[in-house]
Amino acid sequence: MLEKIELLTVASFARLHIDDKEVDGYIKDLNKILSQANILQELSTTDVVPTTHIVTKTANAWRSDISKPCSYDVIELILNNAPAKKERFYKIKKVLK
């Protein structure tokens, strides 16, 4: 059973602000999913290997460690999507204080 304190901890892990008025709704909905997920406890999975990927024939996609030039147009397209920029850099809040 998930309670308010755990919900707020999870929200802080997810970097997701929750308003006080939303708390009850999330607790109700998440507990509903949790109770549905409880059915999984019926099965014993001792010695079962967890699925990590469902593709059996994969190979690493190696690339040469060489930088490739990027056209100015593409750089512009990418930078134009930034909520804030300065010259050719993203503008964000200070990371280090």
Partner: peptide, 14 residues
Amino acid sequence: DIFLHAQKIRTLLI
């Protein structure tokens, strides 16, 4: 208890 257990049951299904 939840995530890894589910991935194991996914193996059983597969």
